[in-house]
């Protein structure tokens, strides 16, 4: 079984202060931490589990700056055989569509039975790169996958719908799956494996290898802005004791308990 997994290195912003930089078109990045996109850690784990079951090759691919190689090395340490970085610095105006085109260019000549991506990147929030890539590669896809059972070239697939409803599909490989979080328990890389992975070579490809296709993006950024405040909570202030008394008061006043 030959497997490809697409991995994105993203800023971890759930708990961070996200500021717009002076260009107005990007965020201030120097105080943010970066790591593998959440659903990609599950996609990678699913890929490793498949490889452990059926043998074959596992290639991790990332479009990113040189730092994305750190993230690819984590994939190598966990169980990927090889890694490819597409040089993001060679391309301008990247959106989901252009990203999918570049990923396609990098993997179209590889042999594969399964391609995995995450279901969403937490930075751009698109949920579009996987499905676009499947279309460009000419293979069927399923999104938001929470279970895959493969036998020969057949896959029994569960997709997660709203309200926790599951859709069961019967699919044929080769295919692309976008993986939802919670499908498995992503492993940690051991220190020895991380050290070993540090010495592995990462194949780097750039504009000279890809450009001739003249890839256009679908979307260009006009402006970044802070979301309008909406109804905005009344922030309770004071000592912890005072705040708690206020909350207890609210609860009492509304007859909630």
């Amino acid at each position: 079984m030959d497997i490809i997994v697409c991995i994105k290195r993203v800023a971890q912003t759930a708990e961070a202060d996200v500021k717009i930089d002076s260009s107005g078109k990007d965020i201030v990045k120097d105080r943010l931490t970066f790591d593998m996109n959440e659903s990609d850690t599950y996609a990678l784990e699913e890929a490793i589990l498949l490889k452990e079951k059926f043998g074959g090759t596992l290639t991790a691919v990332s479009l990113g700056t040189v730092q994305a190689e750190d993230t690819l090395r984590i994939a190598l340490a966990k169980g990927a055989d090889s890694a490819i970085r597409i040089k993001a610095e060679d391309f301008e105006g990247l959106d989901g569509y252009k990203t999918a085109q570049l990923l396609k260019a990098a993997i179209k000549d590889l042999k594969f039975d399964v391609v995995f991506t995450g279901c969403i990147a937490t930075d751009d929030y698109y949920s579009q790169v996987g499905v676009t890539l499947a279309e460009l590669l000419g293979v069927p896809h399923a999104t938001l996958v929470t279970k895959i059972d493969i036998q020969d070239t057949k896959a029994q697939v569960h997709r997660e719908l709203e309200g926790g409803l599951i859709e069961h599909l019967d699919m044929t490989l080769p295919a692309l799956f976008t993986i939802q979080t919670g499908i498995n328990e992503p492993r940690y890389a051991s220190l020895i494996a991380i050290r070993r992975a540090a010495k592995k070579e990462i194949k780097v490809i750039g504009a000279s290898e890809i450009e001739p296709t003249g890839i256009q993006a679908n979307a260009s950024l006009e402006e970044l802005f802070t979301p309008p405040a909406g109804k905005r909570a009344e922030i309770l202030s004071g000592s912890m004791d005072e705040i708690s008394a206020k909350v207890a008061g609210i609860i009492k006043e509304k007859g909630l308990i």
């Binding site: 996200v18 965020i27 929030y125 698109y126 260009s220 970044l224």
Partner: peptide, 30 residues
């Protein structure tokens, strides 16, 4: 494009507003 919160369509041009970075910023996209 995907996950749009607002849409403007005028003179054959389409602009949308999307949310990025865990909902901390909005982006207007052409």
């Amino acid at each position: 494009t995907t996950d749009c919160l607002d849409v403007e369509l005028a003179e054959q041009k389409l602009k949308v507003t999307r949310q990025i970075y865990d909902g901390k910023l909005n982006a207007k996209v052409l």
